[in-house]
Design a protein around this nucleic acid. Structure first.
Lengths: 185, 185
DNA sequence: AAAAATAATGAACAGAGTGTTGATTTATTA
DNA sequence: TAATAAATCAACACTCTGTTCATTATTTTT
């Protein structure tokens, strides 16, 4: 990623920033290559040197994000679910914070549902060996937790990401393990 | 909805079926009006008599779905969260089953993220008075639960919707209330 | 059953964005 | 400085869009 020359890096960074900016106001499906290049003030032909179309570009950005995610999860060689859960969760919240503008748009109403699905499938594959479900029922529960955590992240982002990653990690672990019965009458 | 004449009903139903069929193979953003009409064997001009574009069409289908949802939730005048939760959840699973082909594609990788967001926002607005959160922390928990339930539905659909709505409702209520700690060593 | 109203069709149109080309200029690396 | 790589510019045919209008088919009203 650092091997490419400065011009290329600048071009791609500019296109990325512009796409994220546009995605704050409209869905990817309504963003044209022409519009993107006009705003970024980059030749349309140049865009095609890097990406096939806007969706391809978004996919590449998503893959970059996944690459970073892999780096984090690989550091943890969890054996049992109870063990290192909190530190891992905390690192994931931190990573989200580091990619806030990207996460904000990709998870928004103008975002990309396939990112949702890929993210969940990715976490599923990666974390399954750790949790190791024994039944179909467990798969349902697992799906519940993954989506739930994503919901936690989305709500955290949308309310300004006020809490620290550590606070959010504790909160996540608690609700995963114990549910909400203790909060009800 | 039943006031419109047969021809119109047929046209719209045919377009709906065709769109759902196409969405099983590709994302909405890659589906053109031309393609949709060619396959449905309907004049392209006719499409524009009903919808502004493909996204507008999808939005109308989504709104129909929400309308049905409203009908269900309105039947419940829940006072406390513990009360009627299970029957409501069961009805929601049943409704999903009744709209299976639509739900399957709209929640898939080729689906529409704004449907996700609208659905969650809708449930948020509708159910908030029932659960009535007291703190920001509660909002986080609530977001976790909503997304989690959606995850449950998605996994249920993707594994062939084998369990009955009743079974799923029990399962949902259990994990919402108690988490997964009892399933771990 | 005939007349009036509504819906779908077919053909045609300008307009916008696409993806590609080849020649040229600019920036980076050796 | 020379060689290489990247970005630009203008031009191209192509596809889909959204709209129009005259025509045909179906439904509803009288």
């Amino acid at each position: 990623m650092e091997k490419v020359n400065r011009r290329t890096r600048k071009t791609r960074a500019l296109l990325k920033a512009t796409l994220i900016q546009l995605m704050q106001k409209k869905s990817v499906k309504h963003i044209t290559v022409k519009e993107l290049c006009d705003i970024a003030d980059i030749n349309r032909g140049t865009f095609y040197l890097h990406y096939r179309d806007v969706f391809d570009m978004l996919e590449q950005l998503e893959n970059e994000f996944f690459h970073g995610l892999t780096g984090i999860i690989d550091e943890y060689r969890l054996e049992s679910p109870g063990d290192l859960q909190k530190p891992l969760l905390e690192d994931l919240f931190t990573y989200t914070l580091e990619n806030l503008s990207f996460c904000r748009v990709i998870l928004s109403q103008y975002g990309d549902i396939s990112f949702f699905q890929k993210l969940l499938a990715y976490l599923h594959t990666t974390l399954k060996p750790i949790y190791g479900y024994k039944s179909e029922k467990a798969e349902h529960y697992y799906s519940y937790i993954m989506y739930g955590c994503l919901g936690l992240v989305v709500n955290w982002i949308n309310t300004g990401a006020k809490e620290s990653p550590s606070t959010m990690a504790v909160l996540a672990e608690d609700i995963i393990m114990n549910g909400i019965s203790k909060y009800l009458g």
